[in-house]
């Protein structure tokens, strides 16, 4: 009897059943948890929320020598400049084009690879191919772009050598100097790096499909292509759909590492993305105000897209993303 009472008291004291009692009691009971969380709240405020105050720079002629509030206010001048600037409009076009190309190629290759891999019956070989396919994901963009530059080199590059071997071209093409190839090169660099990694989630979804369905289809005389088309693909449709929606929210993040590392003066017209624009004006030319304005434009559009995507997912009957 006594023991139970003491236990009850302990439970009360240590704040386990803390949904009862008023707010001060609960806070007192949870003082350890509160103490533990204070550094994290402080960290988030300083490193994630304080920089948001910097957004006011976009409405000023920011000079680093003066304080943030002693600057000259210029209203929407920088935004108006951005949208009348041909370079910035080109930059938006490049960003959208490259992220849509990356998205389409990424989806097609990851899903295709997952479907093919799922048809491999020899488990050891399947595992081996999988392991190999993850490798590029772990390599940095520095290494990957190095590999791409090597492969496309006019003198020793494997691509030019293969194309010449099969007589498709007569003389080597300098792929990286020609704007018309750049988006494709970026797209396939992403494919090379991301296909295996991207397939993980689809393979996981495929394993959740009931084997009974395949058996029933076999009895009905379906061949393997038909089974893929009528069972596997519909089975992973929800996964495809939800990933598509998530990625739609990221359409202004075309990435910048690959464009930055592969780009050069000759292809600048098609290689510059919003991020590179921000880097060039902000860090390179220390025009903080203009660069911040471009950054805000991207952030705000991204947030709007994510909110829309979230509601689209909900409307389509999928679980909400956040």
């Amino acid at each position: 009897m006594d023991a139970i009472d003491i236990t009850r008291k302990n439970i009360k004291r240590t704040g386990q059943l803390t949904n009862k009692g008023n707010i001060w009691e609960r806070m007192l009971n949870q003082k350890e948890l509160i103490l533990m969380s204070i550094p994290f709240v402080a960290y988030a405020l300083v490193f994630y929320y304080l920089p948001l105050a910097g957004w006011v720079m976009a409405f000023q002629n920011f000079k680093p020598a003066k304080g943030l509030l002693d600057q000259k206010w210029v209203g929407f001048k920088h935004f108006i400049f951005l949208f009348s600037d041909k370079t910035f409009l080109t930059v938006i076009r490049n960003t959208l084009a490259m992220s849509i190309i990356n998205l389409a190629l990424g989806f097609a290759f990851s899903i295709g690879f997952a479907l093919l891999l799922n048809e491999v019956r020899q488990l050891k070989i399947k595992k081996l191919i999988q392991t190999v396919s993850y490798l590029p994901h772990f390599l940095s963009w520095i290494i990957v772009t190095g590999i791409v530059l090597d492969a496309l080199s006019t003198e020793t590059g494997i691509i030019n050598q293969l194309l010449m071997y099969f007589n498709i071209i007569q003389s080597p093409i300098n792929f990286l100097a020609d704007p018309k190839y750049f988006w494709g090169i970026v797209g396939f660099s992403n494919v090379w790096k991301g296909t295996g990694w991207g397939s993980i989630i689809y393979l996981a979804a495929i394993t959740a499909i009931s084997p009974d369905l395949y058996e029933a289809a076999s009895i009905d005389g379906a061949n393997r292509l038909q089974k893929i088309w009528h069972i596997t693909l519909p089975g992973i449709k929800p996964t495809i759909f939800i990933l598509l929606i998530i990625n739609m929210g990221n359409v202004l993040n075309a990435g910048f590492e690959v464009q930055y590392l592969l780009g050069n003066g000759l292809v600048q017209r098609v290689s510059q993305t919003i991020d590179i624009f921000v880097l060039k004006y902000g860090i390179g030319l220390t025009n903080y105000s203009l660069a911040t304005a471009a950054g805000i434009f991207r952030s705000v559009i991204s947030i709007i897209l994510i909110v829309i995507a979230n509601y689209a997912a909900k409307a389509a009957g999928e679980e909400r993303l956040f």
Binding site: Q30, A44, G54, W55, M57, D275, T292, S299, I303, I306
Partner: peptide, 28 residues
């Protein structure tokens, strides 16, 4: 049962969607 669970969670989850951008972070 943590009383500030929702507040702290939202504080962090929002950081996945809202980013101040390169320049403000650089200056910080």
């Amino acid at each position: 049962d943590f009383i500030f669970r929702k507040f702290v969670t939202i504080l962090y989850v929002l950081t996945m969607y809202v980013n101040a951008g390169l320049i403000p972070n650089f200056l910080l």
